[in-house]
Design a binder for these strands. Structure first.
Lengths: 255, 255
DNA sequence: CCATCTTTGTGCACGCGTTCACAAAGACAT
DNA sequence: ATGTCTTTGTGAACGCGTGCACAAAGATGG
């Protein structure tokens, strides 16, 4: 998953494990699809397959919410949709601001998945005066001078940062000072926030790098010594003379 | 997390734990910043702070790669940059295709974090004939009819899916059939792929929902601090949702 | 009302990841 | 050389998450 979390005091958010919370949206999506097809009930096996998880895991996840199933039958789709929505807090309206209306910010503003789940884009904010007033996704962009006022007027508690890395921390500080307590960060930076503020991070580059690692592993071990071409001029250490240019320091793995 | 298929065989990817692999890009970014400031060495404590993790965790992570530190001094920045880059496979060039050039796909194409880390956008692919030939981020969009040929001609093994949900699985199947073995999925769908293919998922909506959960919990603690408020989720089957400060709202359903 | 069948809910064991705490290793000063 | 000081590398304990396997619960049919 694409996420990182800043220090959480392991409060185990009300008895529901973090891992379970992270899967609830997945279940909710699968259940919504079933609901649209007017499927009345679903077994843990079927729902687990639709959500891409293990059925035992799904049952255990639901057990944290309560006993909402009927043995021998399964789960009532509509009822479960409601319970999970309520548990996630999606039965209320969450005004959200997006700061940084570049390519990514515009994409986020246009992303349908937000509005369809109780999230409402309350404002788009950018530091570029030339952007001010220009509508993106039907919403006029506002200048970041008014950030605090926008937050307060709309009662925003969730902010999305889609600025360049350098601007992320200052923007974050201002958001927090204005009252935002949850931040979704797309900028490739570690944000530092006071206690009580949640930060989740989505980093496109990191995801690709993790894929590259596995891809390299799949490609085989001989690839490491074979291709020498694209190395980005990172000089190897001068001291250790016994190690060749591409000679590997013995990795931890035996074989 | 790596959301491959149902239960992958717990691949301890070459002795390096998944959790460690997921943090390596984080360390690499912090180290790169230090390198640009010409900092020669760094202690585990300093680097851990910069990466936003625990120093013991960082040292253990590095221990999986080998012993690259010097006791009493710390780690050589340049050397560590090289080692991590090599471990992640970033010393080679990875051609990547992006399928689905909507708002998000265009944002990804323009995203600088790709090119700066050994990833090269080899092609942009879209199903809309009107898009064909139109340049995005300086790269002409190609029609999806040519997907297989593009993959093969460029030796692409990593694909990024930024299509609508409905198109994701068919696109995924074609990518895999053409030889792609790693997929970064932005579409809100569970992709099913054969063994040996890695899928990582980035879901903007899910991240926001997780934030909403914590946000709701924080709001509930404030409102009901001291009362029975901490009642575990085993509330009765009635709709006694008393957590939110505002009243109960019927479940929001996507249109 | 009883038997059978289906599916949930969960106790339990196991493995991974995190954290602590400290010995070992090297730098540095004398 | 020797002692001191700093920092790494890691053994060990612990906690969380996962998956198995099964008993309990309810539906269903006779």
């Amino acid at each position: 998953m694409a996420t990182g979390r800043t220090h959480r005091p392991a409060t185990r958010s009300r008895g529901i494990p973090e891992a379970t919370v992270a899967r609830l949206p997945l279940y909710l999506r699968a259940l919504t699809a079933l609901s649209e097809r007017s499927v009345p009930t679903v077994s843990s096996e079927e729902l687990a397959a639709a959500a891409g998880v293990n059925s035992a895991k799904l049952r255990k996840d639901f057990s944290y919410l309560g006993s909402y199933g009927t043995r021998g039958v399964g789960y009532d789709v509509e009822y479960l949709v409601y319970q999970i929505s309520r548990e996630l807090g999606l039965t209320q309206d969450w005004p959200v601001v997006i700061v940084g209306i570049g390519n990514l910010g515009a994409a986020l503003a246009n992303y349908g998945g937000f509005a369809s789940r109780g999230f409402r884009v309350a404002a788009l904010i950018d530091a570029d005066p030339a952007m001010a007033g220009k509508p993106v996704a039907g919403i006029p962009v506002q200048h970041s001078d008014d950030l605090e006022k926008i937050i307060e007027d709309n009662g925003v508690s969730i902010g999305v940062i889609a600025t360049p890395a350098g601007a992320a921390q200052p923007v974050c500080d201002r958001l927090v000072a204005a009252g935002v307590t949850s931040i979704l960060n797309f900028a490739p930076t570690v944000l530092s926030v006071p206690d009580g503020v949640d930060v989740r991070k989505v980093d496109l580059s990191i995801e690709l790098q993790i894929l590259a690692f596995h891809e390299q592993r799949k490609a085989g071990e001989e690839a490491a010594a074979g291709t020498d071409g694209g190395a980005p001029a990172v000089a190897a250490r001068s001291e250790s003379a016994d190690k060749g240019p591409d000679g590997d320091v013995p990795a931890v793995m035996p074989a």
